[in-house]
């Protein structure tokens, strides 16, 4: 109870509170994607064969490359936090910048991947797609919506990390006050984990 007394006096420096808040938020994010996974599961069971052939059309190479990129970025993110704990400000800045760089590369890859598909006339409501079977239409619908929503999260993540970078440069994030960076890291890992699920679901299970 003594600890509680301290925390309610010092409202704004409750690290555990901030972490609980972040974890709860990540929960809601998982559920947001969870809704999509549910849609995926339902349509996959209904259209086994179509999903099978449609998934084969996606480039496993680009997908795998992006997976590697995101995994690496998660690593650099963790290193950035470890660095700030050691008061290694410069190292942390470098690792944070690397994370952002990887995120951007991920999006560039995604851009080309989408671009190629759209170039083939495969996008929602395109005449080409509508001519295909129901399962294929749904698969591509899911492909665009799921990776689209994920890409949106990557974008938000980039914004978040840039903010953290600025805060670190200005010494607002230090080895005694780094919960913001830690929480951004948690968010970034979530973005990574969601992709870890998307990759097999869309690219691998054919």
């Amino acid at each position: 109870m003594a600890e509680l007394a301290k925390t309610s006096e010092a409202v704004h420096r409750d690290y555990t509170g901030a972490k609980i808040g972040m974890w709860l938020f990540l929960f809601t994010e998982i559920l947001l994607f969870g809704g999509l996974f549910l849609v995926y599961a339902v349509y996959r069971t209904k259209h086994q064969a179509d999903f099978h052939t449609a998934a084969a059309e996606l480039s496993v190479a680009i997908g795998a490359a992006n997976t590697m990129i995101l995994l690496t970025s998660s690593l650099t993110m963790a290193l950035a936090i470890a660095a700030i704990r050691r008061s290694a400000k410069t190292a942390s800045i470098v690792f944070q910048s690397l994370t952002i760089l990887f995120a951007v590369i991920f999006l560039v890859n995604k851009y080309f991947e989408w671009g190629a598909k759209i170039g083939h006339g495969l996008y929602p409501n395109s005449p080409e797609l509508l001519a295909q079977s129901h399962g294929t239409i749904l698969f591509y619908g899911l492909y665009y919506v799921m990776t689209g929503l994920h890409a949106l999260h990557v974008l938000i993540g980039i914004g978040l990390l840039l903010t953290m970078l600025i805060l670190t440069v200005r010494d607002r994030i230090t080895n005694t006050d780094f919960v913001k960076l830690e929480n951004s890291g948690l968010y970034w890992h979530l973005v990574d984990i969601v992709w870890i699920y998307l990759f097999p679901l869309l690219y691998l299970i054919t």
Binding site: T28, E29, L31, L32, F33, G34, G35, L36, V39, V42, Y43, K46, H47, P124, N125, L130, S133, H134, G135, I137, L138, G141, L142, Y144, V145, L149
Partner: peptide
């Protein structure tokens, strides 16, 4: 609430892009 969020988003996306999740003509349920 997040489930509602994604569901409403899907309807909006459906209305703008015709993705087909909820349109029986495209296999939606």
């Amino acid at each position: 609430t997040p489930i509602l969020g994604i569901t409403l988003l899907l309807v909006i996306i459906e209305r703008f892009f015709g993705v087909g999740f909820f349109d029986p003509a495209k296999g939606g349920d």
